[in-house]
């Protein structure tokens, strides 16, 4: 297993920049998630790390050795990076066992490594099947086994669960992450799904428009986004007009605590509130907000309320009083704030 360092890497296609000076560090044995909307460059970054494409500028080091830089390129077959693409891409002409054995040296193909790796992903019974005889989830597990079999230094997963439906997606993702943890693999997972990224990663890198806008522990990135983009990409975010003074923000829903990084600021700012931070409180304890719309959602009701100039959605109990025409709201917990640029 090895660490990965990406140092101010740029890449463009036909004059169109896709990556603009990306920095990324993944420690040995860590699972890192690259989270971003489609077209942000995350797949390109993964393909550069795997060596399928060359960097225009900057450097990529794997295990401390330079692998990619302008003018020097270690071909993918020399990098020892296991690659799990979208939809698995199992070789259709080989059985499951044949797929897993493909990357092993000839001497090791009959040695039990194939069975051992298949057992690791719980697919030992499928060894003689062909890929078209497998379900989507099984294909992904076999694709992971194929990548793990030659004991790579790093596993690169490119939106591997995209082809699966939502429920299967969560369970296959959990299994894959558990397998990666058991083997102690260093892994980079590309995804556009924040929940998947939070659930699997030790380290989360948020990508936007060809740059990594923030990297850190998932919890801290969610709680303390450093930019509006990072806030939006990592989950639903409500931006309220606010004024900061003395390390606290004043908003239309009342006063809000600030995270440490935002406390030093002052003046007009966008206060970033996660929906779960907005609480219904008793009369007199919070801001008055008229109800514009209400919608029954089974286990809860969703209210659309007016707060200052904002329309925001608030979760309420399923049996919320049908006669009420307003609620009282307060912000719980600390929020990030983005000071408005002057002019």
């Amino acid at each position: 297993m090895a660490s990965v360092t990406v140092d101010s890497v740029s890449k463009s296609y036909g004059g169109q920049p896709v990556l603009r000076g990306v920095d990324l560090a993944v420690r040995e044995g860590e699972i890192a998630a690259l989270l971003g909307p489609s077209g942000c460059g995350k797949t390109t970054l993964l393909r550069l790390i795997a060596g399928f494409e060359r960097v225009d500028a900057g450097e990529i080091a794997i295990g401390g050795e330079a692998a990619s830089r302008a003018g020097g390129h270690l071909p993918p077959e020399k990098r020892r990076i296991g690659y799990v693409p979208q939809e698995g891409a199992l070789f259709p002409h080989l059985t499951v066992a044949g797929n897993v054995a493909y990357g092993l040296p000839r001497s090791e193909r009959g040695s039990g490594r194939v069975a051992e790796t298949l057992a690791l992903v719980g697919c030992e019974a499928l060894a003689d099947r062909y890929p078209h005889q497998l379900s989507g989830g099984q294909q992904q597990r076999v694709a992971l086994a194929r990548a793990l079999a030659p004991r790579p230094r790093l596993i690169a997963l490119d939106e591997p669960f995209n082809g699966l439906d939502l429920e299967l997606r969560r369970s296959v993702c959990a299994e894959v992450v558990a397998t990666l943890r058991r083997t102690g693999a260093t892994a980079i997972l590309v995804t556009h799904d924040p929940e998947e990224a939070f659930a699997s990663a030790d380290s989360l890198a948020v990508m936007h428009a060809g740059r990594i806008v923030q990297q850190g522990a998932p919890r801290s990135v969610y709680r303390a986004p450093e930019s509006v983009e990072a806030a939006r990409i990592t989950g639903p975010a409500i931006l309220l007009d606010g004024t900061i003074s003395d390390g606290r923000a004043e908003t239309a829903i009342g006063a809000a605590e600030l995270i440490e990084a935002s406390r030093g600021a002052s003046g007009a700012a966008d206060i970033c509130v996660r929906p779960e931070q907005i609480a219904l409180v008793a009369h007199g304890l919070g801001a008055h907000a008229p109800i514009l719309e209400r919608s029954f959602r089974g286990d809860h009701s969703l209210l659309t309320v007016k707060v200052g100039n904002h329309r925001i959605a608030v979760r309420a109990p399923a049996d919320f009083d049908a006669g009420a025409d307003h609620v009282h709201l307060a912000v719980e917990g600390a929020c990030a704030a983005f000071v408005r640029q002057r002019g």
Binding site: A50, G51, P75, E77, I81, Y83, P85, F91, H93, G103
Partner: peptide, 21 residues
């Protein structure tokens, strides 16, 4: 081409990847 890329990542050179996959 994705199949060939996977073959490359599993240690085969470009010609070997073409021939085996």
């Amino acid at each position: 081409p994705r199949l060939e890329e996977v073959a490359r990542s599993l240690g085969r050179g470009p010609l070997a990847a073409f021939a085996t996959v």
